[in-house]
Amino acid sequence: MMLLLLLLQVLASCLWLGHGEVVTSLISTCPQFFFQKTPPNAALTPQNPAWICQRYGNKYYFATLYDRSRRIPVYSAYLYQPGPGKRPNTWMVEPQLVGPNYPKTMEKEWTLLNHFKVSLEQLSKSQALLQDYKNLTGLNRGHLNPNGHHEDNSSRKATFTLTNIVPQDAKLNGGAWNNYEQQTMMRMTQGCNNTYVVVGAVPGKSYISNGRVNKPSFIWSSACCELGRNNTKAWGVIAENNRDEVELLTLGELEETLSLLYGRESVSLFHSACPRE
């Protein structure tokens, strides 16, 4: 009888991993967002992490490592597939950060509070809320994974979850960082068949919303693109989150910089087949 119960637990666990939103392993559920199915190493993992396969409707659109304590994403991983379309204006949250019995797809705050009877306190303990980003001075809601890097309305909407948002310097977000996202990425990815992106935020020492949400000290992004058979190129950028300036780096230089900023083991963002030089 005990063996049967154990087998049922294992089966339930496998089913959960296959379809969950907040998961124990990104590779088990949404490996398609990582080059060679290899996510960044553990050097970026915070003390209180959540791994999220970001699901909108019935489809996964990107992967996120979320810092539950600081209420910001550590990184988002996605495929660069820009296309025409309007900027959505609907903000959502992640129900399964509240608990595993809630929907596996992102929902509006209003929907969770009214249809699923989640309390505002429950929701606020699990993640950032819209009210955390109100009345900011010099900062705004900065996407890690930008909606403009996606090809259709659904994939763009999926980026409008607060687990993909950090308090970002308003001038940087609308200036040099926007220029990198829109212009530099387009130029750098010419000739690429597939471009894998990992974009992240280094936690800072200050917070917004009465200490609820961390303001990152740096925003960074990295890319590895497949040019053809066994031919790849890679690069990275980093920006201080109080200056309108973006520094273009090799992937190796970015990893070395992040290793110093995080102060732990050496950071590895991609599979070793991506060139570091």
Results as ranks from 00 to 15, higher is better:
residue 1 M to Q: 07
residue 3 L to D: 15
residue 3 L to K: 14
residue 5 L to V: 03
residue 5 L to T: 04
residue 8 L to E: 14
residue 11 L to F: 05
residue 21 E to H: 11
residue 27 I to P: 03
residue 28 S to R: 14
residue 33 F to K: 06
residue 35 F to D: 11
residue 42 A to V: 05
residue 45 T to F: 08
residue 46 P to Q: 09
residue 49 P to R: 08
residue 52 I to P: 01
residue 57 G to L: 12
residue 58 N to T: 12
residue 62 F to N: 06
residue 67 D to E: 06
residue 69 S to F: 00
residue 70 R to C: 02
residue 71 R to W: 00
residue 74 V to D: 08
residue 78 Y to S: 11
residue 81 Q to K: 13
residue 82 P to V: 02
residue 82 P to F: 01
residue 83 G to R: 04
residue 85 G to H: 06
residue 91 W to F: 11
residue 93 V to M: 06
residue 95 P to I: 00
residue 95 P to W: 02
residue 97 L to K: 03
residue 104 K to A: 06
residue 106 M to P: 01
residue 112 L to W: 03
residue 116 F to W: 15
residue 116 F to D: 07
residue 117 K to E: 07
residue 117 K to W: 04
residue 117 K to F: 12
residue 121 E to I: 05
residue 122 Q to V: 05
residue 123 L to G: 12
residue 123 L to C: 09
residue 125 K to F: 05
residue 136 L to G: 10
residue 140 N to S: 15
residue 141 R to Q: 14
residue 149 H to A: 15
residue 152 D to Y: 01
residue 153 N to V: 08
residue 153 N to M: 09
residue 158 A to Q: 08
residue 159 T to L: 11
residue 160 F to P: 12
residue 167 P to M: 11
residue 168 Q to R: 07
residue 170 A to N: 11
residue 175 G to E: 07
residue 179 N to L: 02
residue 180 Y to F: 15
residue 181 E to D: 12
residue 182 Q to E: 12
residue 184 T to A: 11
residue 188 M to F: 10
residue 189 T to Q: 14
residue 190 Q to E: 13
residue 198 V to S: 05
residue 201 A to I: 04
residue 201 A to L: 09
residue 203 P to G: 07
residue 204 G to E: 10
residue 206 S to I: 12
residue 208 I to G: 13
residue 209 S to I: 03
residue 210 N to P: 02
residue 212 R to H: 13
residue 212 R to I: 00
residue 217 S to N: 05
residue 218 F to P: 00
residue 219 I to H: 03
residue 219 I to S: 06
residue 222 S to C: 03
residue 222 S to L: 06
residue 222 S to M: 04
residue 223 A to T: 10
residue 226 E to G: 00
residue 228 G to A: 09
residue 230 N to D: 14
residue 231 N to L: 11
residue 232 T to P: 00
residue 238 I to S: 15
residue 244 D to Q: 10
residue 247 E to G: 01
residue 248 L to Q: 10
residue 249 L to Q: 06
residue 250 T to H: 05
residue 256 E to K: 15
residue 264 R to Y: 03
residue 266 S to R: 15
residue 271 H to S: 13
residue 276 R to T: 12
residue 277 E to Y: 07
